[in-house]
Design a protein around this nucleic acid. Structure first.
Lengths: 201, 201
DNA sequence: ATTTTGACTTTATAACTAAAAAAGTCAGAA
DNA sequence: TTCTGACTTTTTTAGTTATAAAGTCAAAAT
């Protein structure tokens, strides 16, 4: 029963941290605040996580899991490749809005990349593989035509990320208005249309 | 003869500032250094420009002129729309490499947007119009098919900017490696291919 | 009259510092 | 094995001063 309890406690800490982090940002949240929320001591947190950075990473991984759960379900229920790609957009959109205070880029920039960049590389690859799968399925049904679904998928993801960055244009950390989010969504839909058209010839 | 000399002196100042700015960055260049380079007094600079910010904007406008001169020539000599779009990429690439220290984004963020954001909006629109013209010409010759060249052009430019931002993904101010630049170029070429394919159906 | 300048004032930046806050540790209790 | 209060160390922050750079102006030069 040891590992069950241990993992459960880890989960509870991650959830408490997630609440604070999404609301106030990771850097504005202290370990004491998380401990107080959980009615336990700060030292307990350090029993389960070696340092704050590890907790931050765990929270980001948790958010990633939630994202992939949603996105995979969305992809699974779509009738066509076109629908699958277009349905992804609002899911990504809501995810970005919800977790924009999670300071993902701060973590990416800090050179504790020793472990974390592996995590993010994997997440990126997983998402790319998902899109590649959608494209491959589209090719199988004759909906799409391409000889390199993986390459196209990587470009698609990269371009979508680019559109988000080019609009909010610096410091993802601070607040982005609802209009800006909506604008990004519209650009992304248009780009998805072009991609889909481009993959029909 | 007054205005001729006046404009000539302005040009000389802009060129001196351009040299320093591209090499060391605008914020690391002092008005005294520019004045010393020109063998004149700092006060003279202030006779031609109300403040450093105005000089910075003038330098950016100058760079913009150089860019459009190159890009228009490139577009004019291309045989097809496809060639025109693909030829733009290395021109943009070289421009970005040469002028990445010009602190464009710092200027855009600073809310002296009173005058400067108009300048940048116009530059953006000019570039979009150029791409729209290429697309329109492609449509006229039957090379491309679309019912909204302006929209597509805006999306194209936005996506290309996005790809640059998503790769360097941090402070455009500091140095970007040659490999990163090359990587951006490759993504941009791939995206251009997709766009062109998407505009043939 | 227009342009230029040295000497000047004002403003912004960088370099310290002290105080506070937060991170992180550990011996021992539960 | 898990948890904690009391503790030490490290990082942030706020305040201060010194320095550098921005910006001004009356007067000189062209």
């Amino acid at each position: 029963m040891h590992t069950e309890n241990r993992d459960e406690m880890r989960e509870r800490i991650i959830e408490a941290a997630l609440k604070r982090f999404t609301h106030y940002g990771a850097s504005k949240t202290t370990m004491n605040e998380i401990a107080d929320d959980m009615h336990c001591s700060k030292a307990s947190l350090y029993y389960y996580f070696p340092d704050k950075h590890a907790l931050h990473l765990a929270v980001l991984e948790k958010a990633g899991e939630m994202y992939f759960q949603e996105i995979e379900q969305s992809a699974a229920t779509a009738a066509t490749a076109q629908d699958a790609l277009l349905d992804m957009i609002p899911v990504r959109h809501n995810f970005a809005r919800r977790f924009c205070r999670l300071e993902l880029f701060k973590v990416l920039k800090d050179k504790q990349l020793l472990h974390s960049d592996e995590t993010f590389r994997l997440a990126r690859e997983k998402e790319t593989a998902l899109v590649a799968g959608i494209i491959r399925k589209g090719v199988a049904t004759g909906e799409l035509v391409t000889d390199n679904p993986d390459q196209i998928a990587a470009l698609y993801i990269q371009s979508m990320i680019g559109l988000r960055l080019s609009l909010s244009a610096r410091e993802l950390t601070d607040d982005i208005s609802e209009e800006e989010f909506e604008l990004v969504r519209q650009w992304q839909v248009q780009l998805a249309d072009i991609f889909i058209k481009g993959l029909k010839s």
